[in-house]
């Protein structure tokens, strides 16, 4: 069953021209997309392809100029259900510093439920639950400034979780992090998807991050180029090249080895596994 459904969605930005007139710049164009409840969807594309616009359309920050966005049976152009939609679609943005509302960790996480008018005792429960889910319980009373980038993003995720959403959208949330921080965030997101059956939409331009996804959606110039399982998408390597994306290096290497006659799994995603296999083959020879 789908939780989010986009039907022929288009959105353009108003760009001021030199004289007082305006021109329209395409954000996204004619997007049709269905996201299954409990699935892990990766949205990829290079900069300016409309990924972030799409993200903002998902929780009604932007309302489509044409087409419909349906979230859990509600439409984002219906003003009455906008808060319901936003509490259902938790959003984590790119820059961890720009989404902190207060400087104390637990108070920042409480911001969402406070806005929803959740009773005080339940807010405390939700905050503790959310902190435990992102593995940061001991940081409750700390100030946010002293945390690392990865920790700040986990706090931002906890802030979204505290609203008890069904969907979590990460809008390039790993882009500004170091490898360790990226790993932390991805681990949290994957465990939320598996354990809490939360629908996750991960927007990224790191192809390595799409590997664990159920579905990959590739975008270019505001349009959906292709979608499918990661392996299906990786097999369309010419198409990926056209939109400026690259297949993850391990898979690329495995494929080249395979085509050179080596007996390796061409869909191998784990570099260590591939290395071991190659060593094993060399040893056997």
């Amino acid at each position: 069953m789908h939780i989010i459904k986009l039907t022929d969605v288009s959105y353009s930005y108003k760009v001021p021209a030199e004289d007082d007139s305006y021109t329209w710049q395409v954000g996204v164009k004619n997007i049709d997309l269905e996201i299954e409840q409990g699935s892990f969807v990766a949205l990829v594309g290079h900069n300016g392809c409309g990924k972030s616009t799409l993200a903002k359309l998902l929780n009604g920050l932007f309302v489509p100029h044409s087409g419909k966005v349906e979230v859990a049976g509600m439409f984002t152009d219906d003003n009455k259900s906008i808060f319901n939609i936003r509490s259902n679609v938790g959003m984590v943005f790119q820059n961890p510093d720009n989404q902190m509302v207060t400087s104390i960790v637990e108070e920042d996480i409480a911001f969402g439920p406070e806005n929803l008018g959740v009773p005080q005792k339940e807010i405390v429960e939700r905050v503790h639950w959310a902190l435990a889910k992102v593995g940061m319980s001991e940081f409750a009373r700390r100030t946010t400034t002293r945390l690392s980038g990865g920790q700040k993003q986990r706090i931002a995720i906890a802030g979204a979780l505290a609203m008890h959403p069904q969907v979590l959208v990460l809008d390039e949330s790993t882009a500004m992090l170091d490898p360790q921080g990226r790993k932390e965030v991805l681990e949290v997101v994957h465990s939320l998807n598996k354990e809490e059956k939360m629908t996750v939409i991960l927007i990224t331009h790191f192809m390595e991050e799409v590997l664990g996804a159920d579905k990959v959606v590739v975008m270019n110039h505001g349009c959906k180029v292709t979608e499918g399982t990661p392996m299906e998408v990786f097999s369309r390597s010419r198409l990926l090249e056209e939109v400026g994306l690259k297949v993850p290096r391990t898979i690329e290497l495995a494929r080249r080895l395979k085509s050179a006659g080596w007996n390796v799994d061409e869909n191998c995603t784990d570099a260590t596994e591939l290395g071991d296999r190659v060593c094993q083959l060399l040893h056997n020879n």
Binding site: K56, R86, F93, N98, V101, F111, N115, A156
Partner: peptide, 13 residues
Amino acid sequence: EELAFAMNSRCYE
């Protein structure tokens, strides 16, 4: 601007 988006996403009104 980004902060405003983040606050709106968390249902601030």
